Simulated assay, not measured.
Amino acid sequence: HTVAKVLVVPGVAIAQEFYLGVVLDRPNRRVLVMASAEGGVDIEEVARERPERIVRALADPLLGLQAYQAREIGFALGLPATKVTGFAAIAQQLYATYMAEDATLAEINPLVLTEAGEWLALDAKMSFDDNALFRHPDLEELRDLAEEDATELEARRAGISFVKLDGSIGCIVNGAGLAMATMDAVKLAGGEPANFLDVGGGASADQVAKAFGLVTADPRVRAILINIFGGITRGDVVAEGITEALSNVNVPVPIVVRLAGTNADEGRRVLAEAGLTAVETMDEAAAQVVSSAAAR
Results as ranks from 00 to 15, higher is better:
124 A>P: 10
56 R>A: 11
262 T>C: 03
218 D>H: 01
259 L>K: 01
118 E>K: 15
235 G>Y: 12
107 E>W: 00
96 A>N: 09
179 A>D: 05
59 A>T: 10
261 G>I: 04
78 G>H: 12
159 G>F: 03
152 E>Q: 14
160 I>R: 13
104 T>F: 03
180 M>Q: 10
246 L>Q: 08
277 T>W: 03
48 R>N: 12
44 E>C: 04
17 E>P: 04
287 A>Q: 12
218 D>P: 07
214 L>T: 12
134 F>P: 06
179 A>F: 08
153 L>K: 13
181 A>L: 09
173 V>M: 00
189 A>K: 08
66 Q>T: 13
48 R>E: 15
214 L>N: 10
13 A>S: 15
191 G>A: 05
108 I>S: 07
210 K>N: 08
110 P>S: 06
49 E>I: 02
33 V>M: 05
247 S>P: 08
32 L>N: 06
233 T>G: 07
156 R>D: 12
118 E>F: 05
268 R>F: 09
40 G>Q: 05
53 R>A: 15
132 A>C: 14
12 V>W: 07
296 R>V: 11
176 A>Q: 04
117 G>K: 10
152 E>A: 11
102 D>R: 01
3 V>D: 09
200 G>Q: 05
187 K>Y: 11
220 R>E: 10
124 A>D: 09
23 V>Q: 09
7 L>F: 04
254 P>H: 08
120 L>N: 05
241 G>P: 12
195 N>Q: 05
259 L>T: 02
9 V>W: 02
175 G>V: 04
85 T>N: 15
31 V>D: 08
280 E>G: 00
72 E>I: 00
133 L>W: 05
245 A>W: 03
128 F>H: 14
28 N>G: 01
238 V>D: 00
275 G>F: 13
269 R>M: 14
294 A>W: 06
152 E>T: 11
280 E>S: 09
273 E>K: 14
200 G>P: 04
270 V>D: 01
12 V>T: 15
159 G>L: 12
43 I>D: 10
136 H>D: 08
114 T>F: 02
65 L>Y: 03
63 L>Q: 13
130 D>K: 08
148 E>Y: 00
145 L>A: 15
100 A>R: 11
120 L>V: 14
167 G>M: 02
181 A>H: 02
263 N>G: 03
269 R>H: 13
72 E>R: 15
266 E>R: 07
